[in-house]
């Protein structure tokens, strides 16, 4: 039975490059990020080239994607959040494609590595702090004191709010990474069950019959995995919106 963790191994493609003790090889992770970037750019550019009144497939896809993200921003940040559209859209598309391209056989799921999701999450986190402080000054820190809370409770609520604020990038990163990694791990483990059952000696054709059951479970899991892939791209984008909302209007 093959190692279920093998699929997460990062390997250099073609050649390995080492500059000043830093491994700068073009890895399989980088390759699939590259594919996602190219694919999204080409699809959206091609979709918007015609600008037909009655959209074709590609144009409809691009427009739906645009509207979906625009609505998400309007609902979660409000009309003042329009400036964040490019950022949220890019984040959403790159996470979505990372999750979905990972469902292809022989591909690599770059969102299953915490270093990738953590980089995205820390970028959003740093952005919230920087923009928040630039825009609101020290008033930004009133974020930790919700309005309408009695003074005695503030002593308790402020530490809680600070801890949950510090936990934000980690929740954001861990949620995406853990879900993608766990899902792919389960798929591989169930596929391994099938192979193991066929390999049992002395039961002949019965091994193939028994091996069909994990495969059946796996086909259901794949559908579930696609749902998870879509959902977590959405969750990531929505939470980015919610966090960025603190920069446009503090609660007072």
């Amino acid at each position: 039975m093959s190692d279920p963790l093998h699929q997460f191994e990062i390997q250099p493609m073609l050649f390995s490059l080492d500059i000043g003790g830093v491994d700068l090889s073009f890895t399989n992770s980088a390759l699939w990020m590259f594919i996602a970037a190219i694919l999204s750019t080409v699809t959206l550019t091609a979709g918007m080239r015609r600008k037909a009144l009655v959209p074709g497939r590609l144009q409809a896809l691009s427009e739906m994607l645009y509207e979906f993200v625009a609505n998400m921003i309007r609902e979660n940040i409000g009309s003042k959040g329009r400036g964040y559209f490019p950022l949220i859209f890019t984040t959403f598309v790159i996470v979505l494609l990372g999750n979905l391209l990972g469902m292809l056989p022989y591909s690599f799921t770059y969102t299953s590595h915490i270093i990738v999701t953590m980089a995205l999450a820390l970028f959003i986190f740093a952005l919230v702090i920087v923009i928040g402080i630039v825009k609101n000054g020290t008033k930004f820190f009133s974020l930790f004191a919700p309005p309408g809370v009695p003074f005695v409770l503030l002593l308790l609520v402020i530490p809680l709010e600070i801890i949950s604020f510090l936990a934000r990038p980690i929740t954001l990163a861990v949620r995406l990474f853990a879900n993608m990694m766990a899902g792919h791990l389960i798929l591989k483990v169930f596929a391994g069950f099938s192979v193991a059952m066929i390999g049992i000696e002395g039961i002949g054709i019965f091994g193939y019959v028994a091996g069909a059951f994990p495969m059946l479970v796996n086909s259901i899991l794949i559908a579930f995995e696609i749902l998870i892939a879509l959902l977590h791209a959405y969750v990531f984008a929505v939470l980015s919106c919610i966090y960025l909302k603190d920069t446009v209007d503090l609660h007072h």
Binding site: I163, A167, T171, V174, L231, V238
Partner: peptide, 30 residues
């Protein structure tokens, strides 16, 4: 557009699922 409608007005299913997905990590990570 003002976001006044909020979530109570149209609690769509995707919002509910995503809230459920959020809750686990929000509980453990802090």
């Amino acid at each position: 557009t003002d976001g006044k409608k909020g979530r109570n007005a149209d609690d769509s299913e995707s919002n509910n699922i995503s809230d459920g997905m959020r809750a686990g990590a929000e509980l453990i990570v802090p």
